[in-house]
């Protein structure tokens, strides 16, 4: 319904020069309708409650790369923990109190000779319990198809120019495993404690498309 407000218009460009995003007034898709029907049935039959669903969404949104960063920082400071992480990343994460659910987690370690990068060519498998929701680019066809074919070019676009003597290992999450990269601890971080180290660990460094921040 066209209407006027004093001072602004819904057409054209915003004051910052970007087009307004249209309201999503289109009808529900088949699967959106299906999801609503299923959810309402489950609530009606007492299998779950709206509050329980909202709580679960809240818990999913609360996960962030800070969880993974804490695991990485522990591995950097505690060699025995690092070994347990490489042996069974799920068990080691649970040991730190992170609920990683039924998923199976494998940690892959970057060294001077090896750089690991994670992709899911078939869909968007991602270690959500440790890193939160995946970035949009992780789910894009370009990232999924190019990372297995030309990982060095992709990494270069992320600002990561790997020397030729470093071997790139791409990990395609095709089935029941999820992966997290254990990046190399940056030089010059000897004065930092575990919390300080965790602040150097970026989301992208745990996907393998970046490196940890350098200490100031």
């Amino acid at each position: 319904m066209p209407h006027d407000h004093p001072g602004h218009s819904h057409d054209g460009l915003s004051p910052s020069g970007h087009p307004y995003r249209p309201d999503n007034d289109q009808p529900l898709t088949y699967w959106q309708t299906m999801e609503i029907a299923l959810r309402e049935l489950l609530i009606e039959r007492g299998e779950t409650t709206a509050e329980e669903i909202a709580r679960q969404i809240d818990a999913m949104d609360a996960r962030s790369p800070a969880n993974g960063a804490a695991v990485v920082a522990r591995a950097w400071t505690d060699p025995a923990f690092k070994q347990r992480l490489l042996d069974d990343a799920g068990a080691a994460s649970r040991e730190m109190g992170f609920d990683i659910g039924p998923m199976r987690l494998i940690a892959v370690e970057n060294t001077q000779q090896i750089h690991n990068v994670i992709v899911c060519t078939l869909c968007s498998c991602y270690p959500r319990n440790l890193l939160g929701l995946p970035p949009d680019w992780y789910k894009s066809r370009a990232y999924r198809s190019r990372t297995v074919k030309e990982p060095r070019k992709v990494l270069k676009e992320f600002g990561l120019d790997l020397p030729d003597e470093v071997t790139v290992r791409v990990h395609d999450s095709t089935a029941d495993m999820r992966y997290i990269v254990l990046p190399r601890r940056p030089d010059g971080a000897e004065h930092l404690d575990e919390d300080g180290l965790a602040r150097l660990v970026t989301r992208d460094s745990m996907i393998g498309t970046g490196l940890p921040r350098r200490p100031e």
């Binding site: 297995v148 074919k149 030309e150 990982p151 060095r152 070019k153 030729d164 071997t167 790139v168 290992r169 791409v170 990990h171 395609d172 999450s173 095709t174 089935a175 029941d176 495993m177």
Partner: peptide, 14 residues
């Protein structure tokens, strides 16, 4: 067409 022949891809296969 390999970017660098000795780089690797790991995947889970049944």
């Amino acid at each position: 067409a390999a970017e660098r022949p000795t780089d690797t891809i790991d995947a889970e296969i049944f």
